[in-house]
């Protein structure tokens, strides 16, 4: 199958890659850009482990083809921390034991980043509805909610 030359802009950097039209964004990020922080849990858009931000909107990276995202600004979990300084959401997930195996964590972090950037004053009901988009099999979610709620306060400061 023919490969196409495309540029993906991820976390502010340009990745010139060569991909088949059928290659998913998630596979391109992981295998062609080497950004393996984005995880694949189901490859059919249910679990949300592959959630990345495309022009600040949360997107399931398993459901799009890489070639569709030329010209978009993509953000992944690797872009959250500033060197050794964790993003407030990463810090809050750590402080509140919001992860166990950590496989769903990048997806939850990116989802929560999008939610809080859009509405830092989100109420509990809306927040729970938004976070119900993704699956976690370890934590029972309560600590994830606590962490996001704590990060909301920190991000406003």
């Amino acid at each position: 199958m023919t490969k196409l030359d495309i540029n993906l802009n991820v976390n502010g950097e340009t990745y010139p890659i060569k991909v088949e039209a059928r290659r998913t964004l998630a596979d391109a990020l992981r295998d062609d850009c080497g950004l393996t922080g984005t995880h694949l849990g189901c490859e059919h858009g249910v679990c949300g482990a592959c959630t990345v931000l495309v022009d600040d909107q949360p997107v399931r990276a398993c459901l799009g083809f890489a070639v569709q995202f030329e010209g978009s600004q993509i953000r992944t979990v690797e872009g959250l921390a500033d060197g050794d300084e964790l993003h407030p959401l990463q810090q809050a997930f750590w402080d509140h034991h919001g992860l166990q195996c950590g496989f769903c964590t990048p997806g939850f972090l990116m989802l929560a980043v999008a939610v809080l950037e859009k509405n830092p004053d989100i109420d509990d009901g809306e927040l729970r509805r938004a976070l119900a988009s993704n699956l976690c099999r370890c934590t029972g979610y309560q600590n994830i909610v606590k962490a996001v709620r704590a990060a909301a306060g920190a991000m406003k400061r």
Binding site: L35, T36, G37, H39, V77, E78, W94, H97, G102, T105
Partner: peptide, 21 residues
């Protein structure tokens, strides 16, 4: 005590099976 194993998991720097090539 919060977990000592968390930082790589939070940063997307962990190495799960699919991350190994």
């Amino acid at each position: 005590l919060r977990r000592i194993e968390d930082p790589p998991l939070l940063k997307g720097a962990a190495r799960f099976a699919a991350d190994i090539s």
